[in-house]
Design a protein around this nucleic acid. Structure first.
Lengths: 204, 204
DNA sequence: CCAAATGCGTAACGGTGATTACGGTTGCAG
DNA sequence: CTGCAACCGTAATCACCGTTACGCATTTGG
């Protein structure tokens, strides 16, 4: 049961890290501040995560794992591909423009070593990409969409769905999209995607 | 001529600031480092820009002004609207994903106060938006595109053109797009835009 | 109940950064 | 030529941060 406590404690510490990070930005986030917020001790943070980067790496990988998990759960349904996109889109938007993701993006952007960015991208986009490929390939089998390069199609979908929302969130000029806004944006992306990749009009 | 020298000196200092910023990230950029790089003195930096934020605000606003200037120059041509987009798109991509813009985006993401982000966004996107509106409205007059909400159409164009390039650049997982890549991406955006907003297929 | 381990709270160490202060130098005005 | 204002180079001030170290309370395993 020591393990359970520890898991809980880690959750608390990481939650505290997000709070401080969201409030003060990466530069303004100190280990002491996190420790205080979590009512934990410096020593514990260092003994558990090694150093500051280690803590943030942990945040990033855990967050990415949760994202992937959520999406894979969606994928298990046997609805048709576009319906899946209909539920998966808002979810993805939620995960990618939520406060946590924004905080992590900021941290990665601020980290001069690039390590965080690499982890974030590898565990994030590069993990989501193949899942979306699956969905779009299914859509093509069902003859709902038509395309040659799957990667190209996924890129297009992501552009339509997310666009520059993330960067605008990261620099602080864009509030978190509401539930309705996420839904609408997802619908819009699907709508445009169908128009661009409709099985009738063939073109490159 | 004191003024001329001063203008030149400012250029040098700001160029130095970019060098340090691009090399070390916002967190790793100190005023002393900038001063040394520019062979200038701390005192001068502070007397001219007030404080660190002031210096970066200056960078942001100057950069945004240059972006706007470039775009307005393009707009003056009397080509048809889509041709304008054809030259304006790569330019915009260049300006928004270039090293300077990326460095500024990182700085804004790292800045906990949000001031830099506000300035960057206000002087950047919010300045570019009306210019693009003009172009798209012209395209509608020429019956090359069809849409109701101009803002919506501009948003769509920006999503297609830029997508998540900026955030990926900011977190360091995306190299600067080559000239050819920028051109191709711009063409792709126009291609899709025409398909989605074609005057034939009417829909919301 | 005892001893070891674990975690808390706080202080200490070494380093660095933003900001200020100061003496020396240079270019320009009178 | 001389004084002055701006500017350079550098050092000083003050604060904070990452990291380590230490004394104390609590928990855990036997």
């Amino acid at each position: 049961m020591r393990d359970e406590n520890r898991a809980i404690r880690q959750q608390q510490i990481e939650a505290a890290a997000y709070q401080v990070l969201e409030a003060n930005g990466y530069g303004g986030t100190s280990m002491l501040a996190i420790a205080k917020q979590a009512r934990a001790s410096n020593e514990t943070l260092y003994s558990w995560y090694g150093d500051k980067q280690g803590l943030f790496q942990a945040l990033v990988t855990r967050n990415a794992a949760e994202v992937k998990e959520h999406l894979e759960a969606e994928l298990k349904s046997d609805h048709d591909a576009l319906s899946i996109l209909g539920t998966l889109g808002p979810k993805l938007l939620d995960l990618l423009t939520g406060d946590r993701a924004v905080a992590l993006n900021r941290a990665a952007a601020a980290d001069s070593s690039g390590e965080l960015g690499a982890t974030l991208s590898k565990a994030g986009r590069e993990a989501v990409f193949p899942l979306l490929k699956q969905v779009l390939l299914r859509a093509r089998e069902e003859e709902q969409l038509s395309f040659e390069e799957t990667g190209e199609a996924v890129g297009l979908y992501l552009d339509l769905l997310i666009g520059d929302l993330q960067i605008r969130r990261a620099i602080g000029r864009q509030p978190r999209p509401s539930h309705a806004a996420r839904k609408a944006r997802s619908e819009r992306a699907i709508h445009h995607l169908r128009r661009v990749l409709s099985p009738e009009n063939q073109s490159t």
